[in-house]
Design a protein around this nucleic acid. Sequence first.
DNA 1: TTAGGGTTAG
Length: 579
Amino acid sequence: MHTHNIYADSVTYSELIKCCISRGAIREAKIVHNHVFSNGYRPMTFLINVFVSMYVKFNLLDDAQKLFDQMPERNVVSWTTMIAAFTNVRDYDKAIGFLILMLRDGVRPNSYTFSSVLRACCKLSELRQIHCGIVKYGLESDVFVRSALVDIYSKWGDLVNAERVFSEMPTGDLVVWNSIIGAFAQNNEGDEALSLFKKMKRCGFSADQATLTSTLRACTGLALLELGQQIHVHVLKFNQDLTLNNALMDMYCKCGNLEDAQRAFSRMLNKDVISWSTMIMGLAQNGFSQKALEMFEAMKKAGIRPNYVTILGVLFACSHAGLVDKGLYYFNSMQKLFGIEPGREHYGCVIDLLGRAGKLDEAIKMIHDMKSEPDAVTWRALLGSCRVHQNIDHAVYAAKQILALDPDDAGTYILLSNLYAKSQMWEDVAKVRKIMRDKGVMKEPGCSWIEVNKKVHAFVLGDNSNPQLDEVIRELNKLILRLKQVGYVPDTNFVLHDLEGEQMEDSLLYHSEKLAIMFGMMYSVKGKAIRIRKNLRICGDCHVFTKLLSKIEDCYIVIRDPIRYHHFRDGICSCEDFW
DNA sequence: TTAGGGTTAG
């Protein structure tokens, strides 16, 4: 048989190997391999490629490489198979190394090669070089190459070039659309992601799992519950897609709708570590710490191994419920119990945990004990606690550390100046304000969003462009009067700077969340939850205001700030005034 | 006739 038609033999062998691969028959495949290479038979390059890729598919990369090394000649497929294999196991160095060897060998890369190797770029400059290669070889219009380019530019945060690759070529398929929608969704540009989603549908493409997952992520970022619910309808078509259901659950959690999140969670037949971690973190951020910890126990019982992120959720729950001992227990034993080395973020949670509980000295000690270098986020956790406990000395210390690492951090200047103001240290307030002016550091204006009838309404402190603003303020004034009659006193401690009396109270009265809540009360369906998302953390006065309001007007209000959620009902907030 | 792109939790 060996002396007859080599080509016909090769085709037969490759069919045989395909059979082995589809059945996962490694032993049989190896027998075929040995047979082919015995008796001095010299297989064609394409047949050896089949064996190389067979070993790759069986995750036997060493065997694949051994065979590759022995090949008398290698074509573009041989090289590309190895490059793709290294990229898939994240051995990016080797993938790029093989690309260079391939070029040196005089083999011309094609669209398969580039679509595989792009993920292996470890910096933007490397990516630019490979992009040049793509243009040079005339492969920039290949849809596989384009989707890979869009994706990798977005992973490096370069949305400008991602968008350029997307829009400068008229050709495109669903995956290219998914890449660009995912690019914006992953970089917190939900609005743009959603508008591309609409555009995609107008172009006649229908959404698949990946599209819906990214679109849900955009809704999650913007807290668009109504739109998210609309997408939920389409999710049902892909009933048990794990990734998509995880995204759906997260959307409900981040929109403060825990009932639907839990409903989605319990409907899932398969749950992975992300499903559980999402639910744990979702419960914790919404103030249901106890439930989050119960969920963690259930997860372990279900035999799912916690990972780095899971433990962050657990620590977050402990810290926001004031469970110091429990949190410290998990932190101190995470290595032993789950084999997870505490990272910077875990330290951040524990510093927060200690700080909230008023153990500021222990929190500082924890920072000094950290294995990794503390970063601005670490110090901010401490500063937040100093704010809660009004500890000026430690606050100044923490603020200095933050500003050394991040000199333009407006939030830190504001926090510091608020602390000084609260302690009536007006000279220090003025000093901080002066530094801000000199450095040109601008305070991010407070902004709140509310979705009513699938439309998003934004309220920004000091911005009068909203046409309904006058009406909202009129109603808000009436409401404030009613609240004052039942004991509401605006807490001017939260107004920074040098305003006095009436004026001081004014800027506080119109904080963006108050406007958004008022708008919600005026225009959304009565009895329905009023859900607000805001860009800054809620201030103490708005917190008091909203609690009282939920009681007097018998309404349910959910406010999501950048860190956590507040559910106001019947005069009580789910955070138990601890945030 | 072998090789390729997009989706989830902090």
